[in-house]
């Protein structure tokens, strides 16, 4: 059974522990600027919304990659960027309609959530269980996916 990140924004307090955990795992420093998961703040409304790649089945980033640098991890289902193969052309960054794959101007490759190989640090770090790692057929996740993908053409499916 594949597992996925389930995000429940109503539980988020905006503390950014997830961003720190993510960046430390991926970059070796606490650096929210390089986190794969981002908490968006709606100040007027008093809301915090963590968001990251949903590992969507369409995998727009993966299909757009001209050099096969984005591959599926068969164990986790995550779409992973292979740094050594990525040439840094950034086509994936404009192709992903969710804005969850970004270009790092220092390393000159793109980066995205890879589910930490199946043990996501953000979920472990979240003090309020706003981010959990659950079985993929979990109802809440389906709703989130449906929202994320609403109106997007279902290409190739």
């Amino acid at each position: 059974m594949l597992r996925s990140l389930q995000i429940e924004p109503e539980k988020c307090t905006g503390c950014l522990q997830c961003e720190m955990a993510c960046s430390y795992h991926a970059e070796g420093v606490f650096n929210t600027a390089k986190s794969r998961i981002k908490v968006f703040t709606f100040h007027e409304e008093g809301r915090f919304v963590p968001y990251t790649c949903t590992q969507c089945s369409e995998a727009w980033c993966m299909h757009a990659c001209p050099v096969e640098a984005i591959v599926i991890n068969e164990t986790t289902g995550a779409k992973e960027v292979i740094d050594d193969i990525c040439v840094g052309c950034k086509v994936c960054t404009i192709a992903c309609p969710f804005g969850t794959i970004n270009y790092n101007t220092e390393t000159k490759v793109t980066y995205k959530c890879d589910l930490c190989g199946g043990d996501p640090e953000c979920a472990k770090a979240c003090p309020t269980q706003a981010i959990t790692y659950v079985d993929s057929d979990h109802g809440g996740l389906e709703r989130m996916r449906a929202h994320a993908a609403q109106n997007l053409p279902q290409e190739g499916a």
Partner: peptide, 16 residues
């Protein structure tokens, strides 16, 4: 702009 640019495509293509 290098962060989250793809969402521009999302906003356009979903005609949100």
């Amino acid at each position: 702009l290098t962060q989250h640019v793809g969402v521009l495509r999302g906003l356009i293509q979903t005609k949100l």
